[in-house]
């Protein structure tokens, strides 16, 4: 009987312990959520979107050890580039200013990650998703401003700018004396 009670208590403790660990992992996830940049943009946009600011010093330990220089700025799985206008838009993505390699990704089958062009139109109230993945040279992670650039959404019919998302990546662990290592070349989609 005593043995049974002991066993039940141990089971209950393990259950509560694991539930606690799981909730703790939720808080951990929250604490490292700034490893990824995210944005939502309504098109056509009249002005620049809110700046995406990422701080490398806020990366979790696993990220710092394994892949500190690879950064994703994305609109999430569900969409994020939304057409709030009344007409369909033909969207092309370009990036400018970022250091290192830039890769574009979208779950949309019509997206060409080489050219950055969505070959199907974005109809009113529909959305595309997009991820801009940066690979910054490891030696360049030290400056206070690591890199900054823009994700530009262009109407591929007339090449007009219909949205712009400024991005700045900083490293607050450095003293701020080193300056930005901005690359002023325009990265045509993906390199």
């Amino acid at each position: 009987m005593k043995e049974q009670i002991k066993k039940s208590l141990l089971t209950l403790c393990l259950f509560i312990f694991m539930a606690g660990i799981t909730v703790g992992s939720g808080y951990y996830k929250k604490s490292v959520s700034s490893e990824r940049g995210s944005f939502i943009i309504a098109l056509p946009a009249k002005k620049d979107n809110q700046e995406v600011l990422l701080n490398i010093a806020e990366q979790g330990l696993p990220k710092k050890l394994i892949q500190p220089n690879r950064i994703s700025i994305s609109s999430g799985h569900g969409g994020g580039i939304i057409n709030r206008g009344n007409e369909s838009l033909w969207v092309k993505v370009q990036t400018e200013g970022f250091l290192g390699k830039v890769q574009l990704e979208s779950k949309d089958p019509s997206f060409n990650h080489e050219t950055g062009v969505f070959s199907r139109p974005l109809k009113p109230n529909q959305s595309f998703n997009l991820a801009v993945n940066l690979t910054i040279p490891k030696g360049k992670l030290k400056g206070h401003t690591v890199t900054e650039g823009n994700i530009k959404l262009i109407n591929s019919k007339d090449e007009s700018l219909i949205g712009n998302i400024p991005v700045r990546i900083i490293n607050s662990e450095t003293d701020g004396i080193e300056d930005s290592t901005k690359n002023n070349d325009t990265n045509e989609a993906c390199h």
């Binding site: 141990l10 089971t11 209950l12 393990l14 259950f15 509560i16 312990f17 694991m18 539930a19 606690g20 660990i21 799981t22 909730v23 992992s25 939720g26 808080y27 996830k29 929250k30 959520s33």
Partner: peptide, 23 residues
Amino acid sequence: NPIPVRYGFLAGYLITPFLAGSI
């Protein structure tokens, strides 16, 4: 015993969205 751990995780998985966001 994996059973309380398994179901403890499931319980935590369901509680987490209310406290710290979904995992």
